[in-house]
């Protein structure tokens, strides 16, 4: 029973991460509002981060932290720390980019009085 469920999970975790990522990219590409585009980008970042962490996961593993409680324990398997370290960087960078994007949105609104990309000539595509 458990094994079959875990097999399903194989697909579910990656599937969810990719789905969330695609939902975000869809929002960024198909929506007309500039703010919605930024929200889409931030959602897609979330999916991507989950995907990266999922790659480092090992079944039955625990966090790669050698705290005193751990050293007494019997479970010695640890998940991969490298994707976690990379995701930390990616999250912070994503936040920086989001902040810059929102500042640009505010300025575009100040110039054009609208957030609809159809009415901002250079952004139409």
């Amino acid at each position: 029973m458990d094994n079959a469920l875990f097999d399903l999970l194989d697909y579910a975790v990656y599937g969810t991460a990719i789905l969330v990522m695609l939902i975000g990219i869809y929002g960024a590409l198909a929506k007309k509002s500039l703010l919605k585009i930024v929200i889409g980008l931030s959602v897609s970042d979330s999916g991507l981060n989950m995907l990266i962490v999922a790659i480092g996961y090992l079944k039955g593993g625990t966090a790669p932290i050698f705290s005193p409680g751990y050293l007494d324990g019997t479970n010695k398997l640890m998940v991969d720390p490298v994707p976690q370290a990379l995701v930390l960087t990616a999250i912070v960078i994503g936040f920086g980019v989001t902040a810059v994007a929102l500042a640009l949105v505010i300025r575009l609104y100040r110039h054009h009085g609208t957030l609809n990309i159809d009415e901002i000539k250079n952004l139409k595509w």
């Binding site: 194989d10 697909y11 975790v13 990656y14 599937g15 990719i18 999922a54 996961y57 090992l58 079944k59």
Partner: peptide, 9 residues
């Protein structure tokens, strides 16, 4: 990614 596999080394 599903080819890569989840939770295995």
């Amino acid at each position: 990614y599903t080819g890569i596999g989840f939770g295995e080394p």
